[in-house]
Design a protein around this nucleic acid. Structure first.
Length: 581
RNA sequence: GCGCCCGUAGCUCAGUUGGAUAGAGCAUCCGCCUUCUAAGCGGAAUGUCACUGGUUCGAACCCAGUCGGGCGCACCA
């Protein structure tokens, strides 16, 4: 049980006594440490309902509150009840954390399967900065869900079956440079695509030829299929290299092509069941009618504007669209993988698509907890969306390269005595960590203007600050001559710095589940910054190795649990830590 | 036109879903390495939370309107 749950349970008992009927109320971490460690506004909320005096009610609640050896409570302001955790209770909590492999984090996801759909780049195109958010946020959510006990299936739904393949195949047949393909496959695919695109603009005959190649591919022509497969293969190799650098892993890469042969039947089924109908030659699903599920939240919002728009699942020319593929994907994930939850980490501009998609899936009878985990856009200097088409987009590889270079420069300055290969490895870990943390520490819904300095900062609230704090802890243990058994140590927290560190360590188990509740990795990012700050303060204020027993062992144990918690938090964010830096 | 989102310190951003004197980092200023890694620590300064009204014990947060910005709305994904 987390400390909050413990307090809430005791508060619930006091409320029930006070009110004469079962009641519960939320306890939150105090907004300001001057007010205590935790607080509740239960008295004010309940007094409002009952039209009584909040402070008097708070006094009555406190009178019925049995906090025993856990905390003290007092009333402040308009009727807040503030809890101050007793030092002995902190000590007991920290001691319990040291013996807990889960570091206080409950396994709230146990027994449930979640599919996390993220990254999803198009093949035959390089990843650009626009892919950063989905890839990094999605990976972090997958890691956190896994730690919470979910059976997580990370699925990279790559765009491997678009209309762009007409042009790529034409380009492959007319412009391909085999040597260039070997040297840098994706660059060569992009080149032939661009060259074909330009040629098609000048010459309608080329455009027709491209369309013909696409039709051949879709009808299963062996030659074009072979070219397509080769394109997919080299693209996947290129993508995998980036994912390896980012330390991002997928359980599956089921792209659009995987669902290709299910689409025709799916559309037929929708038409037969009356879920879709023809409109202007296209087959559409119209939202807004009766939804066969009374509890459906959208029932309440039937008038909303989004329902006026149809979701097209088959074009007038007979072709299928991504809504069709996405429906087939949902069916596969629910029926094949038994998914209870499906999370789509996709930009917020696609909100309408996902509303329509989830609505259509529910009408179809596919039930799961669907979540569109949207994120804001990355803007150019003009505050407009960065567009792939205009070509001014910054490549993801370039961002990583620049980050690692900048990190290398700092290492050369700060740690000139490191071996060059070790320095290079640290630069990789630090540079890429900085990029990831810049993304994860921000509210995912906020748009931001792309800035090298913002994304690649190495000082202040950044990954290197966190990595450095971990390195500092480990440096203490490197000085130790014998192994240290933290579980055997008695915990005594004397100074303010130690208490504050304990306060944050205990909070880890409260923060991690909260991240998944709202899909906000930045809560964990902000938490880990606070934890690192608390450690740095402790490190400056409290000598560890130079202290006498029993303080020395207690502080060593505190360092050990901080190291584990910090390490785990960074792992959940997908940020690696170097041995030294 | 309809819908969604945003506007917080000089800059970049948080703000635990309605709580107490609105917080971090960067930049600026002052102090701290003979002591476990100074990529650090301690301190100072910084605000018309776009604007107007409303809801209530209490609003950056909820409601209405105004101004400014971004995005989405029929066969791309």
């Amino acid at each position: 049980m987390t400390l909050i749950q413990e307090l809430e349970s005791r508060l619930a008992a006091a409320l029930t006594t006070t009110l004469g009927e079962p009641a519960t109320a939320a306890v939150t971490a105090a907004a300001d440490l001057r007010f205590g460690d935790y607080q509740t506004n239960a008295a004010m909320v309940l007094a409002k309902q009952r039209k009584t005096n909040p402070r008097a009610l708070a006094q009555e609640i406190i009178g019925n509150l049995d906090l025993a050896d856990l905390a003290t409570a007092d009333i402040a302001g308009p009727g807040f009840v503030n809890f101050r955790i007793l030092p002995a209770a902190w000590e007991a909590r920290v001691a319990a954390l040291i013996r807990d492999d889960r570091l206080g984090v409950p396994d709230t996801g146990a027994g449930r399967t979640v599919v996390v759909d993220f990254s999803a780049p198009n093949v035959a195109k390089p990843m650009h900065v626009g892919h950063i958010r989905s890839t990094i946020i999605g990976d972090s959510l997958a890691r956190i869900a896994r730690f919470l006990g979910y059976n997580v299936i990370a699925d990279n739904h790559i765009g491997d079956w678009g209309t762009q393949f007409g042009m790529i195949i034409y380009g492959w047949n007319h412009f391909l440079d085999d040597a260039a393909l070997t040297a840098n496959p994706i660059a060569e695919l992009v080149r032939i695509y661009r060259q074909t695109n330009a040629a098609a603009k000048d010459d309608p005959a080329v455009l027709e030829a491209c369309k013909a190649e696409l039709v051949k591919l879709q009808s299963g022509d062996p030659t074009n299929l072979a070219i397509w497969e080769k394109c997919i293969e080299v693209s996947k190799d290129g993508l995998q290299k980036i994912y390896d650098r980012l330390d991002v892993k997928f359980d599956h890469w089921l792209g659009e092509s995987f669902y290709n042969d299910r689409l025709a039947g799916l559309v037929d089924e929708f038409v037969e069941k009356g879920l879709a109908r023809e409109s202007a030659g296209a087959i559409c699903v119209f939202s807004g009618g009766e939804i066969p599920r009374e509890s459906d939240p959208f029932m309440v919002h039937r008038e909303e504007g989004w329902m006026d728009n149809p979701a097209i699942i088959r074009k007038a020319d007979g072709g299928f669209l991504y809504a069709t593929t996405d429906l087939a994907t949902i069916q596969y994930r629910i029926e094949g993988w038994r998914a209870d939850r499906i999370w789509y980490v996709v930009g917020v501009p696609q909100q309408l698509h996902f509303r329509q998609l989830f609505d259509a899936a529910r009408r179809w009878g596919k039930e799961a907890d669907f979540e569109h985990v949207g994120f804001g856009s990355i803007l150019g200097d003009d505050r407009k969306l960065m567009r792939t088409r205009t070509g001014e987009n910054v490549g993801l590889v370039e961002v990583l390269e620049e980050a690692v270079e900048r990190a290398a420069r700092v290492i050369a300055e700060k740690s000139p005595d490191l071996q060059s290969d070790e320095a290079a490895e640290i630069a990789e870990i630090v540079g890429i960590g900085a990029v990831k943390f810049a993304e994860l520490s921000q509210n995912r819904l906020t748009d931001y203007v792309f800035s090298w300095d913002r994304m690649l900062a190495l000082h202040g609230d950044t990954a290197p600050y966190l990595q450095y704090s971990h390195v500092r802890i480990r440096s203490i243990f490197r000085k130790l001559h014998a192994p240290f058994d933290a579980a055997a140590a008695e915990i005594h927290l004397d100074s303010a710095a130690e208490i504050h560190l304990a306060r944050l360590l205990v909070r880890f188990g409260e923060v991690v589940p909260a991240v998944i509740e709202d899909f906000r990795p930045n809560l964990l990012a902000n938490y880990v910054l606070e934890l690192a700050r608390a450690f740095h303060s402790f490190f400056e204020a409290c000598p560890v190795l130079k202290s006498d027993e029993p303080v020395r062992s207690s502080r060593l144990a505190l360092c050990e649990i901080t190291s584990r918690t910090l390490g785990k938090a960074l792992d959940l964010l997908g940020i690696r830590v170097p041995e030294r830096m």
